[in-house]
Design a protein around this nucleic acid. Structure first.
Lengths: 347, 347
DNA sequence: ATTAGCACTCACTTGGATAGAGTGCTAACA
DNA sequence: TGTTAGCACTCTATCCAAGTGAGTGCTAAT
């Protein structure tokens, strides 16, 4: 059996219609609505073929046809037209993603929010894996008699501080010296690299007082690095789920929302996806909860290296054309807005 | 009509029963279940009186009775017994709230999470209003040729940084001098205080180069202060809503969850509540969405001054005794765990 | 190859009929 | 006079049967 022109046309009509209506469509309605010059009976024959080929399914004997994952896949790969964003949409994205240049994490949060608003789906974004980030600068700043702030700046521009309560006596020069030694030792090293080093040892040979100071600071230093590596997950538009007929069943909505509660697992799922625009449709998803959802993720890059992800989750019946365009435009904007000095593409 | 002993006993039984079962209860069931030595008919008479007094309602003619807000109010104020936390529960709370002493916001986030886990309700927490917080220390740290990190430490222990890209040329001494001047000028002042000052003017009279540097840093300084004042809202246990029969209706669940989406409005609602343990039941809430919910909030204090809030939201039918005990224990722990040096009670 | 016609299928809606939990009233009882 | 048993009544929830309508699949005609 062949996927001829007419079959493709019918399949295209069914998919587009179902994406908008969420209702199974029958031969008669299809013929009337899309005036394609052939009778319902002919359409029925073609539909029957398409079903045999695995592109359509039947909820029950006498219901209309519904596209399968395979149909959506064909639609996404070959049938759908590229959706061009309007100037207004482009402007909205540019404005929202480029104003608060200082705080990167906030921008990512805003990106997720904007994405859910524009698509009416659940959106998510993760910050780049910071383990590839390199340290640039370390400082220890005395605040009062027993409080010191440990400050770490990474090449990506990420800054982290921790207030430490020290029991060991210290003075400003010693702190400043220790900070300089730490900066000297770790500058240019990646966080994950440092995590595997035996850093306590690095400070053993130095003078007694410094060694003691270092001994009480280093564990906190490691903790802070660990915290800096953490990938942050931002979710938005969770309540959009209630506007989607597929999830009007409370059990299903619950399953989906509970998946987002297991943040670590979901973050891992995202991290493990390939880079670029990845669409997985229905049963293409290995996760059981996602079997009747589609997941779209795209990557943004900072200096071509640090890679974060942005995407949406929704019913398999979603406006792939619009959504992919929106996501693409957003990731492009994120990547360029945060382009810093230097940094070669390495992939 | 008088609220005699027996009426109170019956009311108590109805409220307790309904809190656990969520089902209207009839005279016969009540009489059997709570073996109170009087016949269903007598109970019916008393119930009828209680209904006339506004403590009970009737979903329809031949259904059992359901407590009104007024009944819950009486129950909370006079009838319910104090719930004593088990040692295990106490330990859980202490452990989770006192380990990561360094990061205050994280602790608040954990508190919200723990609270929703222990109560199976939706929980929330807001960080203290930082506008009463005083500045302690300001520093400007050069990172590379065009990047400087502005670091602000407040008395509460809160630290904030922003990476600034400067176009104005600078050197380390000048930066350090400016930081010292800023610290001298603003130390001990509250954030909201500084926000109202004309700080650009403060640096006009100094030497030209410094004035220029200050001019490019001050706007960012103000932005950062503004950010430090923001009250952060943490929500947790949103999916618990699905386990509550009252919200099995998808429309209701949606209303509630959407309220949490309007974060600013909800934060304001919380901030405006009185301090101490405040319980508002059903129609005691002015917010329309909350008319059939109960809202419990309690305050925690840092140094008796900075006040944050912690609480839960759920159906009017909730285990007030257990929940208030849990919240009380948690706010006590938060307040003592973060008690810093000095600070008089001022309220 | 296409189409009209027709029997058939299945979910959804509508309208009783019935069961069950509970009320409210009345009259009898202690 | 307060308490209780008895009974008619009310209202929801559930079940079932019949009818409706959108749609299919097959067959025979074009």
């Amino acid at each position: 059996m062949d996927l001829n022109e007419r079959k493709l046309k019918i399949l295209h009509a069914i998919v587009s219609d179902f994406i908008h209506s969420a209702e199974p469509i029958g031969s008669r309605t299809l013929s009337r609505k899309y005036s394609m010059g052939i009778s319902p009976a002919t359409i029925r024959n073609e539909m029957s073929d398409l079903e045999e080929m695995g592109f359509l399914t039947h909820p029950y004997t006498s219901a209309g046809r519904v596209p399968s994952s395979k149909a959506y896949r064909l639609y996404v790969n070959d049938l759908m037209k590229r959706y061009e964003l309007s100037d207004g949409e482009k402007k909205t994205i540019e404005d929202k993603l480029t104003n608060g240049l200082a705080e990167f994490d906030r921008t990512i949060e805003h990106a997720a929010k904007l994405l859910s608003e524009m698509t009416n789906l659940i959106s998510f974004a993760i910050t780049p894996k910071q383990e590839e980030d390199k340290l640039k600068y370390i400082n220890l700043i005395p605040v009062d008699e027993n409080t010191v702030v440990l400050m770490i700046v990474a090449e990506s521009g990420k800054v982290s501080n921790t207030a430490l309560k020290l029991k060991v006596p210290y003075n400003e020069e010693r702190l400043s010296f220790l900070a300089k030694v730490m900066t000297y030792n770790y500058r240019g090293k990646t966080i994950s690299n440092i995590m595997t080093m035996d850093i306590i040892k690095d400070f053993e040979s130095d003078m007694e007082a410094l060694s003691q100071l270092a001994g009480s600071i280093m564990p906190k230093f490691m903790n802070t690095l660990e915290g800096m590596m953490d990938v942050e997950l931002y979710l938005d538009g969770l309540t959009n789920i209630f506007a989607i007929p597929e999830y009007n069943d409370i059990e299903r909505a619950k399953l989906i929302l509970e998946m987002f509660n297991r943040k670590q697992a979901f973050t891992d799922l995202l991290i493990n996806r390939d880079s670029g625009m990845i669409i997985t449709i229905g049963d293409e998803n290995s996760d059981k909860v996602l079997q009747d959802c589609s997941l779209i993720t795209a990557t943004y890059r900072i200096n071509g290296k640090l890679i974060g992800k942005l995407g949406v989750i929704g019913p398999t019946r979603m406006k792939y054309d619009e959504i992919t365009s929106v996501i693409e435009y957003m990731t492009d904007n994120l990547s360029t807005a945060y382009e810093l000095t230097g940094g070669e593409e390495d992939e």
